[in-house]
Computed example of a mutant assay.
Amino acid sequence: MLTGTIRSQIDQIWNAFWSGGVSNPLSVIEQLTFLMFIKRLDDLQTVEERKAEDLGIPMQRSIFPEGANDKGEPFENLRWSRFKHFEAREMMRIVDEHVFPFLRALGEEGSSYGTHMKDARLGFSNPNLLAKVVQMLDEIPMEDRDTKGDVYEYMLGKIASAGQNGQFRTPRHIIELMVNLMAPTPTDVICDPAAGTSGFLVAAAEYLRTHHPKCCATPKAVTTFTTRCFTDLTSMRPCFGSAP
C-alpha cells in the first residue's frame, strides 16, 4: 500500500503536469511512464556497475554504451543520474533530442518493445515542467517492486476518478486560443455548460478588459459589464453577461 507521503508526491506531480499545460490524464500517465522507465534504465546500469566494481569483473550487461551517439552526444549524458542535474533547457534538449531517440532504438526491430516504443516521445515542450517533474520523481522511493505497482494502480485510479467526475481540465493555452478565436464583445452573453474552475469565463472577462477597455470606463459600464455567475436551475449552467 502507498504511504500518504508517496500519494501526496504523486498528486503534486499530477498537478505540476496540469499547471504546465498537460491536462489529459492519459497523456500524464504516458509521460510519467516514460520518465519512470528512463530512471529505471539508469538504476539498472548503476547496479551492474557496482556489481562489476565489487567483484572485479567486467560488466555483464551495459544499457548505456561508452562513447557518444551519432550526433556526438555522450551516452553518459543520457542517464537520469546525469541529466537530472542539468539546467532546465539543457535537460529538455538532452531528453527530447537524445534520450527518446535512444529509447526508440533500444529494442530489436519487430520486437514487442520496438512495437510499443516506436512512437515514444516527450509530449510537452516546457523545460521548467520537465525539470520539476524529474526532481519530484527522483524524490519518490521506488526501489521496492510493490511500490511501483501501487503507484501505477493509484495513477490509474486517478484516471478513472477524473472520467467519472468530469475533471478533464482544459489547458490554459487552449482556453486563451479559443477565447481569442471567439473574440467576445461586451454585448455578448457567455455560457459555459461545463464550467469547473470557470477558466473560460475568467479568460473571456480578461479578453474584454484588454480589447474593450471602455466597458469598464464608467460606473454604469461597470454595472453592465459586471461578471455574474449564477445557476440555471434547469441545466446548472454558469453564465455571465447582460441578461438576454
Rank of each mutant, 00 (worst) to 15 (best):
W14Y: 10
I38E: 01
A105D: 14
L106R: 14
N126E: 04
L78W: 06
A120S: 15
Q31P: 01
K118A: 10
I29W: 07
G4E: 11
S8V: 00
F75D: 08
M136Q: 12
T46Y: 14
F75C: 07
H98N: 14
V22E: 02
L78N: 04
R79V: 01
E90W: 01
S125Q: 02
M136C: 00
M59D: 01
I38G: 05
S125W: 05
E30C: 06
P58Q: 05
A88R: 13
P58M: 05
T3F: 05
H85K: 12
F86K: 09
R7K: 15
T115N: 12
P25Q: 02
E109A: 14
G56I: 07
L26C: 00
K71Q: 10
T115E: 13
R93Y: 09
L106T: 13
N128T: 09
G110W: 14
M92F: 14
F64W: 14
A105M: 14
G110R: 12
G21Q: 11
Q12E: 04
S81Q: 03
G72N: 13
A105E: 14
S62W: 06
N126V: 01
H85C: 04
R7S: 13
S112N: 10
K39F: 09
L55G: 02
M136F: 05
H98S: 13
R89W: 10
G110S: 05
Q9Y: 08
Q9A: 12
V95K: 13
L35S: 01
H116V: 13
E139I: 08
